[in-house]
Design a protein around this nucleic acid. Structure first.
Length: 466
RNA sequence: UCCCUAGUAGCUCAGUUGGUUAGAGCGGCGGACUGUUAAUCCGUAGGUCACUGGUUCGAGUCCAGUCUGGGGAGCCA
């Protein structure tokens, strides 16, 4: 018997009268006065469940069919039929209902067919995958990931798998998780009494990566256009709806590119992936618009149709100073923009994503390229309404002299950046790139307000369950 | 890490100035009903009121501490 995917059954890919088998989990069972039962079965292939009609003359009707509850697994064989009821075009007239797995105690099964809080679902991360909302998130996340790869591939980029384990402790993007095979109860010591990392697995201190950027630059300075897409780790004690200790990041790096080029790249990429979701996951987006965020679909459509506003940091400061709004943190040229400032600009002043450019050098990283004014660097952030910074990027300092000056200013040791400096010594070229937090993108697209609910098993301070 | 806030049935919540036996909806279970869309109707079971200590004749309610969650901030993606 053909094992049919529910998506195909609902799309009419099987002829009326054809006998097929669907396999999945019960969403709801409704018993009708006619002495028949309606089973809503989902298998993850699409948002909707298929309806199987189980007649009372099935041999196991009383003993099994009428005892089915939410999340029992079944294999239902039947003939495809046009539905007599409303709400679906096709349904299955069941001839065999085989129960594969019971729910052993329906009274305490955690996922009742009703609305649960996101916090409750998070505590049952292994079972929340069976809910409507997590199914929709999972499909949209997949759609976005595929669209990201497709976008870069079509533009001639190579996907580089940069290392997850790094010996470079100078990446400067945040606190790192140490990895080690040393016996914590009995650490080897040097003569001076320090921990002897030469005895560790790699013969030196190693960490989980906080960014693939520096590695990515080496390949951009050879392959011209590359991107990374992989897990990233930050050991910061950040407890917000926008931070994870383990998250996925997309980092394109482009040779022969300036700041304006990657600003355009960021805009093109965001529009491309949003368009993909609108066309490929209309079913899931309709659900988000209905249940999570009424503007979910219109917001994406507007993003696709708009052109992002470019704004210089210096001009943003002027706007904030003269807009008449009171801010908790005072605004002055040279200070970093606070969340409240970014929110005002993106949500109230513009009402759409903003590309903020050319920040003061003192509030930005060592590798960003110094502008001609000597005060600002070629950095850019994409600020999205509702979520804030979704992308951060810059043109990199490719001039060795300027780079060394900057290291010295910031009190950093040249020796720690020897291979990174080599890129500036041997055939250096202007290049630029950015980092996109993938969970922040999924959160923005779906309207699901917490990044912990758009990744399967979130890792946050104090929480690594499952 | 800081500020604010919450924790009551399997889930979502109500519970008055501290006062008799802590309630509802959903879900579960039992029953009714000629095709239902989170069906409907009737019945029924289900509670260490997060934990520890304190105030009081009396605490779900007031106080202190702890744990856990949420919102905001910082750091950032």
């Amino acid at each position: 018997m053909t094992h049919a995917v529910i998506k195909d059954v609902l799309a009419g890919r099987y002829a009326v009268g054809e006998s097929i088998t669907v396999k999945g989990w019960i969403r709801t069972r409704r018993d009708s006065k006619a002495g028949i039962s309606f089973l809503a079965i989902h298998d993850g292939s699409c948002f909707d469940a298929v309806q199987a009609v189980a007649p009372s003359d099935l041999p196991n009707y009383e003993a099994e069919v009428k005892r089915l509850t939410t999340s029992c697994s079944v294999a239902v064989t039947g003939t495809v039929a046009r539905s007599e009821g409303q709400g679906q075009a096709f349904e299955l007239q069941a001839t065999v209902v085989e129960v594969l797995g019971w729910v052993e105690n329906p009274d305490t099964y955690p996922m009742a067919p009703k609305r649960h809080s996101m916090e409750y679902l998070r505590e049952h991360a292994h079972l929340r995958a069976r809910t409507n909302i997590m199914g929709a998130v999972t499909r949209v996340r997949h759609c976005l990931a595929q669209a990201v790869h497709r976008f870069f591939h079509e533009q001639g980029y190579y996907w580089i798998s940069t290392p997850i384990i790094t010996g470079s402790d100078a990446e400067g993007a945040g606190e790192m998780f140490r990895i080690s095979t040393l016996d914590l109860e009995n650490l080897p010591r040097t003569d001076k009494g320090n921990i002897d990392y030469s005895k560790d697995f790699f013969g030196k201190e190693t960490f989980l990566t906080v960014s693939g950027q520096l590695n990515g630059e080496t390949y951009a300075c050879a392959m011209s256009k590359i991107y990374t897409f992989g897990p990233t780790f930050r050991a910061e004690n950040s407890n917000t709806s926008r931070h994870l200790a383990e998250f996925w990041m997309i980092e394109p790096e482009v040779a022969f590119a300036e700041l304006k080029d990657i600003a355009q790249l960021a805009e093109d990429m965001l529009k491309y992936v949003c368009k993909a979701v609108l066309t490929e996951r209309a079913d899931d987006m309709a659900f988000f618009a209905e249940r999570i965020d009424p503007t979910a679909v219109t917001r994406l459509q507007q993003l696709v149709d708009s052109s992002f506003v470019r704004m210089d940091y210096t001009d943003a400061i002027e706007i904030l100073k003269t807009c008449g709004k009171k801010f908790e943190y005072p605004v002055e040229w040279g200070v970093d923009l606070q969340s409240e400032h970014e929110r005002y600009l993106a949500e109230e002043h513009i009402g759409a994503p903003i590309i903020m450019q050319n920040y003061p050098k003192d509030i930005k990283a060592f590798y960003m390229r110094l502008n001609a004014d000597g005060k600002t660097v070629a950095a850019m952030d994409v600020l999205a309404p509702g979520i804030g910074e979704i992308i951060g990027g810059s043109q990199r300092e490719e001039r060795l002299e300027e780079f060394d000056k900057r290291l010295a200013e910031m009190g950093l040791d040249k020796e720690d950046y020897s291979w990174y400096r080599d890129l500036r010594r041997y055939g250096t070229v202007p290049h630029a790139g950015f980092g996109l937090g993938f969970e922040r993108l999924v959160s923005y697209v779906t309207g699901v307000g917490n990044v912990r609910d758009v990744i399967a098993f979130p890792r946050t301070p104090g929480n690594a369950e499952f």
